[in-house]
Structure formats: structure tokens, C-alpha cells
Design a protein around this nucleic acid. Structure first.
Lengths: 163, 163
DNA sequence: GAACACTAAATGCATATGCATGAAATGGTC
DNA sequence: GACCATTTCATGCATATGCATTTAGTGTTC
């Protein structure tokens, strides 16, 4: 019943865990050294900046970022504290609210993308040919997550969401 | 100077982050549902159980597991609290100590491997042929971490370290 | 419109993590 | 052996996270 994994599968598991951890660490360190906030902030700002009129509901943000509800709530708190976003009331549904990115938020997102993209290139791009990167995408996609089309990402010139 | 990553590299980055996160989550959920402690405990117990006479220095454990020093210290605290390991004084170097796995620790490690290996099979093995798993290993290895040989892992019948 | 089940968001509380620092021992070097 | 840099491990403190619960509003059913 409980079939054991092949050594190949096990090796893949180990590498998936280790490599991700190392690469993420490396990228986050680069970002931190450049004086930027955590990547989660970037993701949130990017989502917001892409939303029509730069605002969206916390629930939506939560779904996009695939993080727990309370986590979204607190992330928004921080963005608001830093003046990167503002909360707006939602007239349709008074339980809810809208979160709108500010000009400062948009600027930070753009600045971060500079460092972020450089880090991706340094820690991923430079180590893999485009063809190999595609192969890697294909294999990873088989492990169950749909991250959208590679082509779709190409459309987004100003950044990509992580996590 | 700051060359931008190709869209392929960027797509690979996103997938690496997302897929790892989903797969790890899935495996950890399975383990939690089976009533087991976090995977980090497993890794530590495995390292200890493999060490000659079941004991090693915290520093060594730290290097094996690639986690910060304070993190190792606290992990050992918890293992000791649960009776899975004991601290022994180190006569050679009185700053240091030895951590020795207990019988209970060895048993837990083995039990966990049952659930753990099943989870790996379920979330990785079943989704990838062995050949593809190997390809994935090769590509991930290029991203800079040396996780040892795939063949080497095969030698270890009783479990694998994650992270 | 009262009752109920459901959704949106925030928060209290326990635990975990990161960072910096401390305390003890070691190993030179003079 | 006094001095100092280094290593080993622990810990205080601030922040972050997970979980469960609360508060408030919605919409459905009767």
C-alpha cells in the first residue's frame, strides 16, 4: 500500500528542497543587502500594481499569493504602515475593503524589480541555458502546481511574482 | 552590468519557488496528519542515527543540516525534552558537548521514515518517471548546491535528509 | 423580519525565528 | 602565564507565524 519512492524520486525531492532553499536564501540576501524589504512585499505590491486602478480586495490578494488569510491581513498592515498602500472602504460589501497601492508603493516595486531581476539572473539565469530553464519548468510543472504559462510571464515586463 | 534574466530563467525561478513550497507543504501536512513532529526533527534524528555510536557535536549537526547555530541549539533542546536525544559532556573540549540519540529517537526516526517515504512517493515519485527525476536532479544541481551523488542516496535504506 | 449559515477581515495568544550578544573554553603569541 | 582572537554553545529580546476565535456584515430560508 505504502509504496516506497525510487531513489531517483528521493534524490529529486532532496534537491528540490535544498536547491530552492539555497537559491531563495541567496536572492533574499541580495535583496536585503540592497536595503529592500522581504520578497513578500514585492509580490503584494506587484499584484496591486497590476490590478485595475491599483486596488484589490484582501481576499483576492490572498488567493493570488496563496498565503493564509491572517498573513495577508498583517502584510497589508505593514504596507499601510510604510505608506506603500492605503485601505479604502468597500461600499458594495461593508465587511470588506479595498487595498490600493500608493505612488510610493509603485516606485518601490519598480526599484525592487531592478535588484530582484538582477538576483534572478545571477542565481538562476546565469547557471542555466534558456533551453534548460524550459526543461526545468516542464519538470517542475509536473509536480502539480500550475504556475501559468511561460509565455504569459514574458508579457509582464515589470516583474514577476514569486512564491 | 545588471543584466536582466531571460523569461525562461524567470519562469524557472517562479516554479522553483512555487513548486517547492507546494510540495513541501503537502508532505508536511501528511506528516502532521500522521501525528509526527516537523521534518527538521527527522533530519536531525537521521543524522544522529547515522553517526558512529549515535552521537555527534552540535557544530557538526549544524553543518550537516545547514541551519543556523541557534537553530541547532534549540532543536537539540526539543529533542532532549522529548527524550529523543541526550546531551553528553565532551571531555576533549569542555566548551562543547555530544548529542546522542536515544532508543526512542531511533524508533521515531524509523517510524517517521515510513510516513515520510510514502509522502515523497505520493507527491514526487508518482508524478515523475525515474528518468525524469534524474533529469530534474541534474538541472537542479546546476543551480549550485552539491547534494551529493544520487547513487550515494541509494545506499541509505533508512531515510534521507531534506533541507 | 427572525434565525441561521456563511464570508471578510482582524486579533489574542502561544510558539518559532532571527539577530545580537554573552559566557566559557581553547589555542596561539609574546 | 598574561593577552587576545577564535570557537562552541546558550539566551534575551524583538519580530514573525500559526491557530483559533471574534466581530461585523451578507444572503437565504422560513
Amino acid at each position: 500500500m505504502k509504496r516506497k519512492p525510487s531513489t531517483e524520486a528521493t534524490a529529486a525531492w532532496i534537491r528540490l528542497m535544498r536547491v530552492q532553499s539555497r537559491v531563495l536564501d541567496a536572492v533574499e540576501q541580495d535583496m536585503k543587502k540592497a536595503g529592500f524589504p522581504p520578497l513578500a512585499w514585492y509580490d503584494a505590491l506587484l499584484e496591486l500594481s497590476r490590478a485595475p486602478s491599483g486596488e484589490m480586495r484582501p481576499v483576492e490578494l490572498e488567493k493570488q499569493m496563496l498565503i493564509p488569510q491572517y498573513s495577508t491581513s498583517r502584510l497589508i498592515d505593514r504596507l499601510v504602515d510604510e505608506g506603500l498602500a492605503v485601505r479604502r472602504e468597500c461600499k458594495m460589501d461593508k465587511r470588506g475593503q479595498f487595498v490600493e497601492i500608493t505612488e510610493a508603493g509603485r516606485e518601490l516595486q519598480k526599484k525592487m524589480w531592478g535588484a530582484y531581476s538582477a538576483a534572478i539572473e545571477k542565481h538562476v539565469g546565469s547557471k542555466l541555458s534558456d533551453a534548460d530553464a524550459l526543461k526545468l519548468c516542464g519538470l517542475l510543472d509536473r509536480l502539480g502546481c500550475s504556475c501559468g504559462d511561460v509565455k504569459a510571464a514574458a508579457a509582464a515586463k515589470e516583474g514577476v511574482p514569486a512564491r
